[in-house]
Amino acid sequence: MKAGRALWTWVAACAAGAGLVLLAAGRDWVTVTYGARAVPVSAAELAPALGPAAWAALAAVVAVLATRGLWRRIVGVAMALCGAGVIAAAVSGGRPDAGLAIAAEHAPMAAKATDVVQIAAPLVWPVLAGAGGLLLLAGGVVAALRGGRWPGMSERYDRQGPGREGAARASAGGAQTDRELWDAIDLGADPTADPEGEIPAAPRENREKGGGGR
């Protein structure tokens, strides 16, 4: 796989991982029922690190595109740490009894009034968050190990320009062409007669006169 294609495949995978984490971070993970009252507990309460870690990973994706060399590897390590943090938060917040204490704080009267407690903790959201964290972890490791081979954003503009040496040669060539054009005009040549824009040759007798005058 070419370096440019590998880079954009990596960007898509990391963006998908961060999207999964953000999707799971906006849902209720646990619902505790006290008799007839249901108390939902959100992911923001069970795993508050999910949202910040996902946004930090997205910022790291942009940083990888904007940096090269050692800095790109450092950003890759930071992204891997974000992914590991997401996985740990998903495992900790996805436990069935993780939201029991938080639900009791939300409804203390209901928690004291009944001993019948039901806990519903679907695993779909913690699993999605863990999968997103795994993608971010893998993306960070890949960026740290292989990111130095990927092209940078500035290389596109570097390839388009002629460079300093090329510009200097073009400038010198342009100056020499202008000088030849004015010399041909001084010797009686008509530069408008050539549709191709090439420098016309001066008439022979005018060149001889010009050469003789010099």
Rank of each mutant, 00 (worst) to 15 (best):
M1W: 10
K2C: 14
A3Q: 11
G4L: 12
R5C: 06
A13E: 15
A15L: 15
A18D: 07
A18F: 01
A24S: 13
A24Q: 06
R27D: 07
D28M: 00
T33M: 07
A43R: 10
E45N: 05
L58T: 03
A60M: 05
V62L: 14
A63P: 00
L65Q: 11
G69T: 01
L70K: 06
R72D: 10
M79N: 14
M79F: 02
A88H: 13
A89N: 02
A101T: 14
A103S: 05
E105F: 02
M109K: 08
A110K: 02
A113K: 08
D115I: 06
Q118W: 06
L123H: 13
V124Y: 09
A131V: 13
G132M: 00
L134N: 04
L135E: 09
G139R: 08
V142K: 03
V142C: 02
A143T: 15
R149Q: 15
R149K: 14
P151V: 07
G152T: 00
M153T: 02
D158H: 06
Q160R: 12
G161I: 12
P162G: 05
R164H: 05
G166W: 04
G166K: 09
A167T: 10
R169P: 02
A172T: 05
Q176F: 05
L181G: 09
D183W: 12
D190E: 14
A193Q: 13
E198R: 15
E205P: 08
N206M: 12
G213H: 12
R214G: 07
